[in-house]
Simulated assay, not measured.
Amino acid sequence: MRIRATVAAVSGALALSALAVPTAQADGSAASTYRADVAKVKEAARSAASGRSAFSTAADEEPMPYKLNASFSNFKIAKTVKLGTTGQVSVPLSFTLTHGAEVDITADDFLIDAYIYRGSFNTATTASENELYGEDFATCTATSATAATCKGDIDIYLGEDAEILNSQAGTWRAAANAVALNGQAAPGGDLDITKVGFAEKGGLATTLLQRASKLTVNATPEPVKKGKTITVTGKLTRANWDAVNYGGYATQPVKLQFRKNGTSTYTTIKTIKTTTRGDLKTTVKATADGFFRYVFAGTTTTSPVNAAADFIDVK
């Protein structure tokens, strides 16, 4: 789920357990119990990272959480994610949590966030429109007294209430944090942030969020006499997350390929560019029965795609 403000940045909090998931952590509603308090801890730690000494509790500075003995590694997430214009896409992720023996990861108020972000880590922009979280808790399994393997999702919503903009297509980086509230978030109590442990790390992995593309092809006339001219048209479009539709992808190189009937290999005949509206049009000579297709290699922001082949009957 996309969170657009620092104070709400934990709505996708991922909970951790040891050998089993405690009831409070297994229920997604448990996240709401701690979100506001975790957001305060996270904001305080990020504020420190942006200028003050992190985890300081000096009298002349704002209260800071103490540095939690926890670290993150082996973060795995899809290298590319293709996003259309509607629905929800859940992107699985996993990582290893290593922690000190004194850290009780089975506590109901020990929470883990895993998320992806754009731009620099621990900045004001990172904490606003440039973070994507999971909707539910992760499930984690202890592999030793000081390590656990965690799994979760990044949930991305598209459509009229899209949580991602066209301008945000491209490279995103992965991060994770752990918060030990240590009972400080008890109902009706004041949060003593100095008694809360916090650990966070960015740059754990990268993923490409790409605008999904579509490609068509049509070879005419059909049938055609050998040696005559064939006109091959098509169109390259891509998801417009802002307008919730597909629009033409302008001035992109696209390969025209041909596969002779009875064979399995396509050969590139030529490369042409789309028009300002994404249209494609070129001509070739008819040589034999076979299949034409257009092939787009993709870009950082847009997924690759092959058009469904169109058969041409040569007499």
Rank of each mutant, 00 (worst) to 15 (best):
E129C: 08
K225T: 15
I77P: 07
D104E: 05
N122D: 09
P304A: 15
D192G: 09
G202V: 00
V179Q: 00
T143S: 14
S50G: 06
T287I: 12
A205M: 07
I230L: 05
Q168E: 03
G134K: 01
V41R: 00
G234Y: 15
A36G: 02
G248M: 15
N218Y: 14
F258C: 08
R277H: 12
V91G: 09
S167F: 00
R293K: 15
T276S: 08
V244I: 09
Q88P: 02
S303T: 15
F121A: 06
V89C: 04
E135Y: 13
T274M: 13
A176H: 04
A169S: 12
P65S: 02
A49K: 13
Q25I: 15
I272A: 07
V314S: 03
Y294R: 06
G87R: 06
A78C: 11
T300H: 03
E163Q: 13
K285P: 01
D310Y: 09
Q252N: 14
K201C: 02
D313N: 14
E131L: 08
V196L: 06
D60C: 01
P187F: 14
K40T: 10
T33E: 11
D37V: 06
R173D: 08
V254F: 13
T300I: 03
A178N: 10
N182Q: 03
T206C: 08
R2C: 08
E222A: 14
C150E: 02
V21P: 01
S53H: 02
G189P: 01
L19D: 13
N240D: 15
A307P: 09
A219M: 15
T275M: 00
L256S: 03
D37F: 04
N69H: 03
S32C: 00
G248C: 12
N306F: 08
S213W: 04
K270Y: 06
K42S: 11
G234H: 15
T149W: 05
L209P: 12
D37S: 09
F311K: 10
L208S: 00
E160D: 15
V21R: 10
D313M: 10
Y34N: 01
K255M: 05
I193D: 07
T85D: 05
I312D: 12
Y117S: 06
A185M: 08
P65I: 00
Y246V: 03
Y246R: 09
A24W: 04
K273C: 09
D192A: 13
A31Y: 11
L93A: 10
G12S: 04
A205V: 03
V254K: 14
I105N: 01
A9L: 09
A114Q: 12
K42Y: 14
K151W: 11
N306Y: 11
A239K: 03
